[in-house]
Simulated assay, not measured.
Amino acid sequence: MELSVNDTPAYVYTGGRPFDRRQAVVVLVHGAGHDHSVWNYQARQLAHHGFSVLAPDLPGHGRSQGAPLPTIEALADWIESLLDAAGVVHAALAGHSMGSLVALQAAAQAPARITKLILLGSVAPMPVAPPLLEAAARTRDSAHAMINQWSYTPASQLGASPVPGVSLTGLNLRLMERQRDGVLANDLAACNAYQGGLEAAGRIRVPCAMLCGERDQMTPRKAVKPLQEALANVPGGARMIVIKGAGHAMMAEAPDAVGDAMRGFLTTT
Results as ranks from 00 to 15, higher is better:
T153E: 00
L211N: 05
A190K: 00
G237Y: 09
A185Y: 01
S161H: 12
A223L: 14
A193D: 13
P162M: 12
S151K: 00
P154F: 10
G197A: 09
S151W: 04
G245H: 12
A254W: 04
H144K: 06
N186M: 06
A200L: 09
G202W: 10
A190R: 00
Q179I: 05
R178G: 07
R140K: 14
T169S: 01
N148S: 04
T153A: 01
D216S: 08
L211K: 06
A261I: 14
N192W: 06
G182L: 06
W150G: 02
Y152C: 00
N148I: 13
A223D: 13
Q149S: 10
L188V: 13
G259M: 14
S142M: 06
P164G: 03
V224S: 00
V234C: 13
A193I: 13
P154W: 09
L158M: 13
P162S: 08
M176A: 04
H144T: 08
H248C: 10
E199C: 00
P162R: 05
G202C: 07
L168T: 03
A257I: 14
V206F: 14
A238Q: 04
R140N: 00
L168R: 02
E199N: 06
S151Y: 02
A155I: 02
R215Q: 14
D141C: 03
Q149Y: 08
Q157I: 01
N172C: 09
N172E: 08
I204G: 01
L173K: 04
A246V: 05
K244Q: 14
A261D: 02
A201T: 04
G245D: 12
C191N: 06
